[in-house]
Structures are given as structure tokens and as C-alpha cells.
């Protein structure tokens, strides 16, 4: 965003960049920048904390008044409290061990519905597929024999990637459906260490990397499992 900000400023638009990577802001020499010490993916710092978010915005927008010269980069002083683990947190739903993927998805459905009820939205829906169809598409990735994509504009490998994203969002919504505020690491630990879905995505990654299909290999290698969660071997 640093570069795009400078490109917009060069086209006559006053900009302020909120930056997560200070090094990039410095390299590009953003016109006005607020570096924030937050987790990647959280530019406003703290979910469900309007006061915290507003402080970030006031600091960023305030640079329109205080910055006097190009490449003014200011550091936001506050850490986001949600970076710390919530003591004793467990997901809102308890899964029986050893469930097949399709059964696990079904078991989480009531909790995911509770999330939608509580927060009035869902982040699931990139593929347009129903959750009941996910397990079939994902496990096809294990064999490398991906079915034709039912979604115009998405290749089978791209559908697999977005199906994995929908799956992760569904599990995240179910796990956080009781309104508790766990850290991202806690939710990730549960998903990648304790669920059939997490184990399935790890297996898909390995199968995709071994595939001779370039599209599947690229998706599997980089776009299914976060680098921090890759299981070696």
C-alpha cells in the first residue's frame, strides 16, 4: 500500500498510509505514514474495540494536519491488547476426535450459525459452494484429480484454494461464535493442531506439491497452509 499511496499522491490525491511493515514505508518514502505495531491482517489493531480503532484513525488522519514534508512516518505507540492469549480459551464448540471432514463440518454448523446470528454477517462465500460440497472438492485435491470447477472464471485449482479459504473462515466463525476474544494464535493452534480440517489441508498441500499439475502445485505450495503452520516432511 505504500507504493500505491505514493502513486495516488502523485496524481493529486492527499494520502496517508497505515503501514504494518515499517521497512516498506521507508523504502517507498510514503508522503504521510502511520506505522502500527499490529499483527499482519489487523491494520486497525483490535477487533470489536471501537475506541482503539478510533485512536488509530485519529493518529493516521491527524497527519494531514501535522505532517509538513514528504516521507513523514510516525509510530503508533499502543500495542493491540488482543495479541495476548485469552487465558483458558477453548473454541465455542467441542469436536469429537477422529471425525471425517464432512462430519466435522456438519458438527460445526450450529456454532457457525450462532456466529452469523451474533455478528449479523459471515465471511464465508468465496466459492459459492454449500458447506456440504466442500469435503468432496477438498479431498479430491488429495488425489490430484480435481473435478471441473462449477464456478465460471475459477480454474479447478483456484476453486480448491478458495474452498480452503471458505473452510478456514467457517471454522473461525464457529470457534469464535460465543463472543470470546481469543488471540489469533489460539484459534490457529486449535484449527491446525486439533481439527480434521487442518490435517486435511496439510495433506492437500503435500499432495499438491507432489503433483505434476502446475496450477495445483502452485496453489498447494503457497496458498493453502500458512508458512508458520507448514508441517515438514
Amino acid at each position: 500500500m505504500s507504493a500505491l499511496g505514493l502513486m495516488l499522491e502523485a496524481r493529486g490525491i492527499p494520502t496517508v498510509v497505515v503501514g504494518l511493515i515499517r521497512l516498506h514505508m521507508e523504502k517507498v518514502k510514503v508522503p504521510r505514514g502511520l506505522w502500527v505495531p499490529f499483527e499482519l491482517g489487523r491494520p486497525l489493531g483490535e477487533p470489536e474495540d471501537a475506541a482503539f480503532q478510533t485512536r488509530v484513525l485519529r493518529a493516521a488522519l491527524g497527519l494531514f494536519a501535522t505532517a509538513r514534508a514528504p516521507s513523514t512516518i510516525v509510530d503508533f505507540a499502543e500495542e493491540a491488547p488482543g495479541r495476548l492469549p485469552l487465558p483458558g480459551w477453548r473454541p465455542a464448540v467441542t469436536l469429537a476426535p477422529g471425525l471425517a471432514l464432512a462430519d466435522e463440518i456438519r458438527a460445526l454448523a450450529p456454532a457457525q450459525a450462532a456466529h452469523v446470528q451474533r455478528r449479523r454477517r459471515s465471511t464465508v462465500g468465496l466459492t459459492g459452494l454449500a458447506p456440504a460440497d466442500w469435503a468432496g472438492h477438498l479431498t479430491a485435491g488429495l488425489s490430484g484429480a480435481l473435478p471441473a470447477s462449477p464456478r465460471p472464471g475459477l480454474s479447478p485449482a483456484q476453486l480448491l484454494k478458495f474452498c480452503a479459504d471458505d473452510l478456514k473462515a467457517f471454522y473461525s466463525e464457529a470457534a469464535q461464535s460465543d463472543g470470546a476474544r481469543p488471540s489469533s494464535r489460539q484459534v490457529d493452534d486449535w484449527f491446525w493442531n486439533e481439527t480434521t480440517a487442518g490435517r486435511t489441508l496439510q495433506a492437500i498441500r503435500k499432495a499438491a506439491l507432489a503433483s505434476d499439475q502446475a496450477g495445483l502445485k502452485a496453489v498447494g505450495g503457497n496458498l493453502i497452509v500458512p508458512g508458520a503452520r507448514v508441517v515438514a516432511g
Binding site: 465471511t123 473462515a169 476474544r181 481469543p182 490457529d188
Partner: peptide
């Protein structure tokens, strides 16, 4: 990057 916060 994290998406659990976006979910909430």
C-alpha cells in the same frame, strides 16, 4: 496474515 479478527 490473520483473518480471525476480520471474522469478528
Amino acid at each position: 496474515f490473520d483473518r480471525h479478527g476480520w471474522v469478528r
